[in-house]
Structure formats: structure tokens, C-alpha cells
């Protein structure tokens, strides 16, 4: 693919017109500084130093919004951070934030034999990642079928996926307990008290609203790609695993992230399923610090919650390059 333009202005237009050339913010950094050679041989940097108003009109206002949102999103959480740094901290007792800075809560978090925070952390990571991977896989299979194949019951099936999850499950806990104790009698490895059993329950929700997100994205991938591959003799499985999945990488990353966050913070089912402190997840374990009105420990709970937010942020940071750069990266390579 050659760039038809050779002036700077042309290059910019070309970039904008063709995402293959433009790449994206996430891939920008890995590239060598872009330069454009103009007719007389001089080399100019593509990004000229622009005047402030122009910078502001183009990018600056975005930073302004970014800063506003930064305050909006993180401000209430400063209370949590402040409480976590104060040994006798309460969540909202005072507006004097960060009166005391003391990391003893973070240390104590890892020194309670009855509340093995490190184990919870690891459990949550493993359960979250496995569930997210399973959800993406099952969901992508289904989304592909709904998007590419025509069969009777397709519309009803799509609608059912949505409606099933709308049912207010007041008694979901009772039903899941009955179900899992029944399954546990046949397969103790996935019964009550096991993390694998919990993952299976979570995978029950793999088809659902996330499938729609993928379905919508699949629909934007031209069928002609499938057809071309078919002409080349690829089987449907090869097309799906080898080509289509790579093209929809951004949405797989988004669904994986959503599923991870959902699993990471899920409390109700996990508290029914996991009873041994060593097998419990963060959501279940942490809540024990504050569940009793008379022995609430907001300080340690806050410290635990602050640390628990890190994996979510780290995963998002990692996945951003797939989410943002996924489309182009997938088709270029």
C-alpha cells in the first residue's frame, strides 16, 4: 500500500482516510518518528509546533475534559484512600482527608491468618481471568453463529439471551445452592466449595448481553472475507479461529474486561459457593471486615479495596492496545 500523497497535508489526509496507514494512538509509540520527505529533499517532522488555539481546538479541550473527569471519577474514592491510610479511619466521618498517612493497614492486611488477603487476591485473579477467557470464547462462538449463519430460531434465540438475564432473580441464590449441591454429589470437583464450580456458574452468564456486543461487532466485518477464505479451501473452524477472531479483537478485549470486572466484584454467588477462607475471593473476603456493625474495620477494608482495584486497572491498561489498535493491527499482520 503506497501513500498517494507526498506533501505533509496530503499525508495527514491520507492518515485520516486510511486507518491502515494512520494506525492509532496505541501503536504510535512503537513506531519510529514519522517524517515526510518533500519534493526538495528536506525532511520535515509531520507534527509541526502549532499555535495554542489550534492545539486547544484539536486536543487541548480533550485534556480539559480529561482533568474534569479525573476529579469526578476519583474524588469520592479519595475518601477510601484516606481511610485506608488512617489506622482508626472511618469512611465518611470527616472531611479532613489524609490527616494521617500511615501504611500499617496495608501491612496488617497481609498478616491476618484468618483473613488470608494474599490468597483472596490470587483466587480472584485466577477465577476472574479464567471466567473472562471462557466468557469471551463461548460468547464469540455464539455471536459468530448469530451473525454469520441463518437458522430458524435465530431471532427468538437472540431475544431470549436478552430476556433471560432480565428476570429478577430474587431466589437465584437458593436455586444455585440446590443445583450445585446436586452437581457436587456427582462431581465433587465442581460442587459447592470449589472454585471450578464457581467458574462454571459464572460461565452460565457467558451468553447474554455481552454476546450482543460481539454480535454487533461481527456484523461489521464483511462477509466477503469469510467467503474469500472459503474459496481458498478454509474450513469454517479455520475461518472463525484464524481470521474472524483476530478481526474482532477489540470487542473481545472489551468483553473480556467487562467479564473480569464483573467476576472480580461478584459477591452473592461467590459467598454461597466458597466457604473456606483459603478459597474465597476478594469480594467475599473483604466484606467480612465490615459486615458486623459492631466490629467494622473500615481502615483495613479500604486498604483491601484500594489494592483490589489495581488488577482491574492493570488489565485495562494492558488491553487498551487491543481495544484501540485492534482493528488495524488485526488486519495488517
Amino acid at each position: 500500500m503506497t501513500n498517494p500523497f507526498n506533501t505533509q497535508q496530503g499525508a495527514e489526509i491520507g492518515e485520516r482516510l486510511n486507518p491502515l496507514v494512520a494506525g492509532s494512538g496505541a501503536t504510535d509509540r512503537s513506531r519510529a518518528p514519522r517524517t515526510v520527505q518533500i519534493a526538495d529533499g528536506r525532511v520535515l517532522p509531520t507534527r509541526r509546533r502549532r499555535s495554542f488555539p489550534r492545539w486547544f481546538a484539536d486536543t487541548g479541550w480533550r485534556h480539559l475534559i480529561g482533568v474534569v473527569m479525573l476529579v469526578f471519577a476519583s474524588f469520592p474514592l479519595l475518601y477510601v484512600l484516606s481511610a485506608s491510610l488512617n489506622p482508626t479511619g472511618t469512611l465518611v466521618g470527616s472531611n479532613e482527608l489524609f490527616r494521617v498517612i500511615d501504611f500499617s493497614n496495608y501491612i496488617e492486611l497481609f498478616q491476618r491468618p484468618q483473613q488470608p488477603y494474599a490468597a483472596w487476591f490470587l483466587n480472584s485473579l485466577v477465577i476472574g481471568l479464567v471466567t473472562a477467557a471462557g466468557t469471551v470464547f463461548l460468547g464469540a462462538l455464539a455471536a459468530y453463529a448469530f451473525s454469520r449463519l441463518r437458522f430458524t430460531g435465530r431471532r427468538v434465540g437472540l431475544l431470549t439471551l436478552l430476556l433471560v438475564q432480565m428476570f429478577p432473580q430474587l431466589l437465584g441464590v437458593v436455586a444455585i445452592f440446590l443445583l450445585m449441591s446436586g452437581i457436587g454429589e456427582i462431581f465433587p470437583q465442581v460442587g459447592l466449595g470449589t472454585q471450578s464450580g464457581l467458574i462454571l456458574v459464572y460461565l452460565g452468564g457467558a451468553l447474554g448481553v455481552n454476546t450482543y456486543l460481539m454480535y454487533g461487532f461481527f456484523n461489521t466485518i464483511p462477509v466477503s472475507i469469510d467467503e474469500a477464505a472459503k474459496l481458498d479451501g478454509a474450513s469454517h473452524a479455520q475461518i472463525f479461529f484464524g481470521i474472524v477472531l483476530r478481526l474482532v479483537a477489540p470487542i473481545l478485549a472489551v468483553v473480556g474486561l467487562l467479564s473480569f470486572i464483573g467476576t472480580f466484584s461478584e459477591f452473592v454467588i461467590a459467598s454461597i459457593m466458597l466457604t473456606d477462607p483459603q478459597t474465597q475471593t476478594l469480594a467475599v473476603g473483604l466484606f467480612q471486615f465490615v459486615s458486623q456493625e459492631t466490629s467494622r474495620n473500615w481502615a483495613i477494608f479500604s486498604a483491601g479495596a484500594v489494592l483490589a482495584a489495581i488488577p482491574v486497572m492493570a488489565l485495562f491498561l494492558y488491553l487498551q492496545k487491543y481495544i484501540i489498535g485492534g482493528l488495524t493491527a488485526g488486519s495488517v499482520k
Binding site: S181, I272, D276, F287, S291
Partner: peptide, 20 residues
């Protein structure tokens, strides 16, 4: 079995009749 204190009563009421 370690359970969150507030959940013990209701979980017990629903789970005891199942025999588990």
C-alpha cells in the same frame, strides 16, 4: 466454615432444609 456474619442467618434458613 467461615461465613460473613450477616449472611449466616438467611443462608442457614435456606440451606438447612436441603440436608446440606
Amino acid at each position: 466454615i467461615t461465613k460473613e456474619f450477616g449472611a449466616i442467618r438467611d443462608d442457614f434458613i435456606t440451606q438447612a432444609p436441603t440436608g446440606n
